[in-house]
Amino acid sequence: MLNATLRRYLKAFTLPRGIIGVTVLGVLLALAIFAPVIFPYGYDHQTPDAFLPPSWQHPFGTDELGRDLLARTVYGLRTDMSIIAVAVPLSMVLGTALGLLGALSALAGTLAQRLLDIILGFPGVVLGICIVLIMGPGWAALVVSIAVSGLPFFGRQARAAFLEQEQREYVTAARALGVNRTTILIRHILPNGVDPLLVGGALFVVSAIFIEAGLSIIGLGIQPPEPSLGSLLNVGIRFIQQSPTYILGPTIVLILFSMAFSLLSDALNETVNRP
């Protein structure tokens, strides 16, 4: 059963969108992982050559302190990936748990849904601003902001899957045999609700990317000198007249990063919904 499910998911990577998405993501992931090898001098190496235009030596040019913008963009991508790698799975697990509380207790399920409704009332960036004001800007605040903003997304997906599976005959049969609620939830309902959660997880990564970028652009994300894609855009906007190409690199990488997960989400969605 597990092998059949895994093969079904892997079929997504044979579709044109899946191939493009995983290829782009693979290249970006390799750059992020091997950034210390590709740029051994790090992201904060300063030179006298400020605001150099793009060249073979500096494909994205240099910033106001003469630092190579390609190196800072790749290290910024590395930072973004580390945030997303922690925040999205955390949000998926907690959101799914809240969404499935209704399977254990009707009262707990109702309270969880009201909590998710409250969170849903705040746009991702606004919610992030509130969290950053409490925690202070930085990596941890971004992780919490993204994780909390994703709870309604995954919670509602999980609850919808629960309500759908609850009406199935195999669940009714398990109850008739005296199987307890927890066992039904873990063995029957949850495995059959994985598909929408997996597709939704890939889609939510795109939102997470822009939440990080939005908070960093307004100065509430990763703090200098450590780069992130959003913080590079924040600084680049200030120097747009001196160096119009300053934001070129971070913008391209941000678009490619979000495009890769959008394509993967579409490919997974097509695969799991294929008859």
Rank of each mutant, 00 (worst) to 15 (best):
G102W: 03
R175F: 03
R187Q: 12
V132H: 07
A158T: 11
G249T: 08
T23A: 09
I131R: 04
R175K: 14
W139D: 10
A174F: 06
T14N: 08
L233K: 10
L268I: 10
P54M: 11
I38A: 05
P227Q: 11
D195L: 11
G150K: 06
A260C: 05
I33D: 11
V206S: 06
G42T: 15
F153V: 14
P40F: 08
R274Y: 14
T110H: 14
V24M: 04
A35S: 15
P137C: 07
I19T: 05
A147W: 00
G249N: 04
R114H: 13
R181N: 13
V125R: 04
A161H: 03
I218T: 10
F60M: 08
M92L: 15
I217W: 00
R238N: 14
L120G: 03
P16F: 11
V74G: 00
R17G: 11
L248D: 01
L220T: 02
I20H: 07
V88F: 08
L10P: 02
A147Y: 03
P244D: 06
L115T: 15
M259A: 07
G124T: 07
L65C: 00
I84S: 03
F162T: 00
L100N: 01
Q157S: 03
C130A: 15
Y43E: 04
L256D: 01
L15W: 02
Y246A: 05
L65S: 10
F154R: 11
L100E: 00
V37Y: 01
P59M: 12
A158S: 06
V88G: 10
E212F: 13
S262W: 10
P137K: 08
G21W: 05
P16M: 12
P227S: 06
P40L: 04
T96E: 02
I209M: 01
L90Q: 02
L65V: 06
A12W: 02
H45P: 01
G76M: 06
G61W: 07
T14V: 07
R7M: 08
